[in-house]
Design a protein around this nucleic acid. Sequence first.
DNA 1: TGACGAATCGGACCGTGGTCCGTTTACGTT
DNA 2: AACGTAAACGGACCACGGTCCGATTCGTCA
Lengths: 197, 197
Amino acid sequence: MSTRPPAPRAERADAARNRERILQAAERLFAERGVEAVSMDAIAEAAGVGKATLFRRFGDRAGLALALLDARERDLQGLMLRGDPPLGPGAPAEERLVAFIGALVDLLEAHTDLVVASETAPPGARYRSGLYATYHMHVRLLVAEARGPGADADALAELLLAPLAGEHYRHLRRERGMPVERIKAALADLARHALRR
Amino acid sequence: MSTRPPAPRAERADAARNRERILQAAERLFAERGVEAVSMDAIAEAAGVGKATLFRRFGDRAGLALALLDARERDLQGLMLRGDPPLGPGAPAEERLVAFIGALVDLLEAHTDLVVASETAPPGARYRSGLYATYHMHVRLLVAEARGPGADADALAELLLAPLAGEHYRHLRRERGMPVERIKAALADLARHALRR
DNA sequence: TGACGAATCGGACCGTGGTCCGTTTACGTT
DNA sequence: AACGTAAACGGACCACGGTCCGATTCGTCA
């Protein structure tokens, strides 16, 4: 549950304490009432903190959601860069891509509403997250490896990531009622086809 | 620029007049200041109408944007159902899909911010639009035709439409700075690969 | 033409995300 | 220990999307 201080200089003690209080309050309220039903006011109050403190610390709603996801996202990032195959290095590109997509779906499934919140608040939040850039680069390298220099790996990576947007995933799961395994299978099918020369 | 009345019964004269005033005011303000910079209050005032009237007529911000897009979307729908090949019936599935994607990109390019607005306002607006359902069915039939009964055409169609979400398209164009033709080419590449058996 | 009910209107109102700015607090320095 | 300053605080404040409800207008039927 801890988050690394983004500070260039050490964080003041009260600031660190408040950050932790806010994260705990947010996590509790989200779990109790559902992410969408909890206002920023409510979180500030539950954390015993002024509203401005909450916003100063996390920027906006998306930033707070992202902070709560931080640990999980960081885990996935570590696994894909340094973990065992097929997620980590060593397996063929196609297998690595399918494994990556599967892992991302697991994360999405476990925290759908939080991911949606992290991508929704200001328009375009998804693409500003830094995390997105990491995922994009990963997929781009795999596409380039499998397809060779003829393909536009950069653009294809963007397209392959599009269905993994929180809102789209939620649509498939909730409105369309598709089971997780079916979604994974379709994504894997698309990914494998996209990687063929 | 006209929109068909959604009324089961004929619309009262003042209601029709106000609808038209609102659409014109919205179109003018959007063009003058940019979609994102225009508030619903401003539109109501410019139209000489109470705010409630605006919301009663169009539901929410997304609904208003959708009404402004209505004519164009309707055109596209007509062309893909009854137009000449390759967009309309008669061409092979792969060519029809590429043509459809190209046409949708043209629409997206011409009205990016309006499309984003039509998909953004309430979470999940994109998938409630009825229009989305039409596009989905179209793509699904083409996928089924090309891939045969073995593939999950329903799910694949959802995945192929994901990169055509307004926000994603805007990301590619504005943040990433990709030219329209490059986006079309990558989408066509992905579509063709996805349709291969 | 007058009158009546239903449809429509519109401005006051609400909750929300986000910001401003005067006040307080931590903490390195002497 | 006292001090000075940068950092952090918090509650009042703002604009926006959206709703409520009493006042008004349309259109019909006598």
